[in-house]
Design a protein around this nucleic acid. Structure first.
Lengths: 228, 228
DNA sequence: GGAACCTCATTGTTCTGATCTTTCTCGAAG
DNA sequence: CTTCGAGAAAGATCAGAACAATGAGGTTCC
């Protein structure tokens, strides 16, 4: 992990330990504890503690010390928490959570994007769809994936809702994951057409069609829900 | 505002100033600046700075100082950011964003809840729906609202997806807001039936029906999308 | 004249040691 | 057994110092 500063390295180590379960909920530490564990000064230990507290992963109390909070309280939308979970044995669970989030988010994002996308965003969306067809039919999976990620990022950004837009990075992570699960026929041929349908609806200005097309696009993901 | 500790008071003041636009994106501060502005020591100023950095509301660089980041980079899922926005002139925008989020989230949450709710959660959901009818028909709006909030909280919790569950608090905030917009016939009579339909589908175990019922329940909210 | 290089002031980063405040524990008094 | 007070533990805050990166501005060399 990157560590331009000392505190970010300690934070990363500590966060990973908590997420991995090495420091389970209910564990109690002290600042002095952290200082020795990572050989840092009180100030650095305190800054890490404060950040984890701000992520609601720990609570700090006088006389008691630093207590690891149960997972249910964590700020699971923070990029670091997501990153730590993706880098731990909870990777599959985190990807599942994000996938379920996509199911709800992306159709409405497409709807909103249809209402609010700028001309520039519509053009970029069309370009991304064209790239998907180009690289999908010529079997260049990495470029196809990049176009796919770009496509979904634009939809989310064009939704005009900052809470939708903020999900672009973790959703990109999910997309990056899917090809590795080894479908032999990646990309699935119909997928390209579905993306084009979404793009056409957004460009035409038919929000309900865009929403329906996005739902269709996600239907295979949806089909897996029951199996979990 | 609450301020059990000094740093939380400073953090709150600073966060509010940034969200309100009093410190616009691009503004540059220094640590010494913060120390004097709030009459606190270096350590406290640093802890606040670190937390705001962790919310991606500021960046800290040597020689440059502390720079306010553009809104698009903020961690808009953090409860403090949401709180600051709700307490600022962006209140309406924040409520709109959350409402749009509900449109996507809640139908799938209902779907998932149908698949995953515990017997206890189903019973509590039924109780909440019954409370809604009881207090809705006897015109006790505060109790009706409490039951409504409880209803949606259970659906989100029962989804078994921590990212859905984490949205319970802000969504409760949206629900608390709606009656104040002064519908004379609050609660809307049909609403109770829609909630019951969701509850029945969840208890019966029909995920698609639950999803459809929740979508219907949100249809009036959806209708307002075009108007924005 | 311009581009590469050097110097230095500025500002965050880290460390240290001390003091204050809260809060739990334990023992003594009633 | 209950109540209350003294003490200890741990975080909270402050102050001062040394360190390190980095950008601005001047200098030197084509």
């Amino acid at each position: 992990m990157s560590a331009s500063t000392l505190h970010s390295a300690v934070l990363d180590a500590l966060g990973s330990d908590i997420v991995s379960g090495e420091l389970p909920a209910g564990s109690v530490l002290t600042l002095e504890n952290l200082q020795q564990r990572y050989s840092v000064s009180r100030g650095v230990a305190r800054e890490c503690m404060r950040i984890l507290e701000s992520l609601r992963m720990i609570t700090s109390q006088r006389r008691t010390g630093i207590c690891i909070s149960p997972e249910r309280q964590w700020n699971v939308y923070d990029t670091r928490v997501i990153r730590w979970r993706l880098d731990s044995r909870h990777r599959a669970a985190q990807l599942r959570s994000l996938t379920e989030l996509r199911l709800g988010i992306e159709p409405i994002a497409a709807h909103l994007a249809t209402l609010r996308a700028s001309a520039d965003e519509r053009a970029t969306l069309r370009a991304a769809a064209e790239d998907m067809r180009r690289y999908g039919t010529t079997h260049r999976p990495m470029r196809y994936l990049a176009a796919d990620i770009e496509f979904h990022r634009i939809i989310l950004a064009a939704s005009g809702n900052e809470m939708y837009t903020a999900l672009a990075d973790p959703i990109a992570e999910v997309l990056r994951e899917s090809p590795t699960h080894g479908r032999s026929d990646y990309p699935v041929p119909e997928t390209i057409g579905y993306h084009e349908a979404v793009m056409e609806a957004v460009c035409t200005g038919d929000p309900d069609a865009a929403e329906r097309a996005m739902t269709t696009l996600l239907s295979d993901v949806r089909g897996a829900l029951r199996l979990i």
